[in-house]
């Protein structure tokens, strides 16, 4: 899971930094003059190491963005509207408050497993965040729901089950109870 990988990288890098600070702090017990040329040499090495790590990181990750790609086509479209304080999901466009009310309380949209689904997400009022949680409660995917824009989020669901949607952008007093739902089968 990508969250755990990121966490391990964080722990390793933070651990190295803490170790360096601890080492330096303990070194003050034996005070002595340091060779500035060696220090500059070490800094130069650090520069290249950090640069290499960053360039590697950029190279490995910059191509893997969640934005819609031209070379892939979804098999299904789901229309989503966020509004204080619920998400409405539908197979057909939600164009007004009546559609929104009907779809907020309607039967959950059915999404086929294994195929790429495109969520077209917008908002009728303020910024929300359409965040899809898997049946085992991991954050799978998200995009912002904004008035005036349609964000297209494409996700492939391999695991059948009931998926809940939470709002991850503070949108008012009901922010924590804002939900949506759909089924994958």
């Amino acid at each position: 899971m990508i969250q755990m990988h990121a966490f391990y990288i964080f722990l390793i890098a933070a651990g190295l930094l803490i170790a360096a600070f601890l080492y330096v702090a303990l070194s003050t017990r034996n005070a002595r003059e340091i060779n500035m040329q060696s220090a500059y040499g070490l800094r130069k090495l650090l520069f290249f190491v950090v640069l290499a790590v960053l360039v590697l990181g950029i190279g490995m990750t910059l191509g893997k963005t969640p934005y819609p790609k031209a070379n892939e086509l979804p098999g299904k479209v789901v229309f989503v509207v966020g509004k204080q304080f619920s998400f409405a999901l539908s197979d057909t466009p939600i164009t007004n408050d009546q559609d929104y009310e009907a779809r907020t309380y309607g039967i959950p949209v059915q999404v086929p497993a294994g195929s790429l689904t495109e969520f077209r997400v917008m908002s009728f009022d303020v910024n929300h965040s359409f965040a899809v949680y898997s049946p085992d409660d991991h954050l799978l995917a998200q995009t912002q729901a904004m008035p005036g824009y349609v964000n297209r989020l494409r996700v492939r669901f391999d695991q059948p089950g009931r998926y809940y949607v939470l709002c991850l952008e503070l949108c008012g007093m009901g922010h924590h109870r804002m939900r949506g739902v759909f089924d994958v089968n």
């Binding site: 819609p68 031209a70 008035p147 824009y149 349609v150 964000n151």
Partner: peptide, 11 residues
């Protein structure tokens, strides 16, 4: 068809 779309709509 080129893989882009008009993301904004009129308020």
């Amino acid at each position: 068809l080129r893989g882009k779309f008009v993301a904004s709509y009129a308020l």
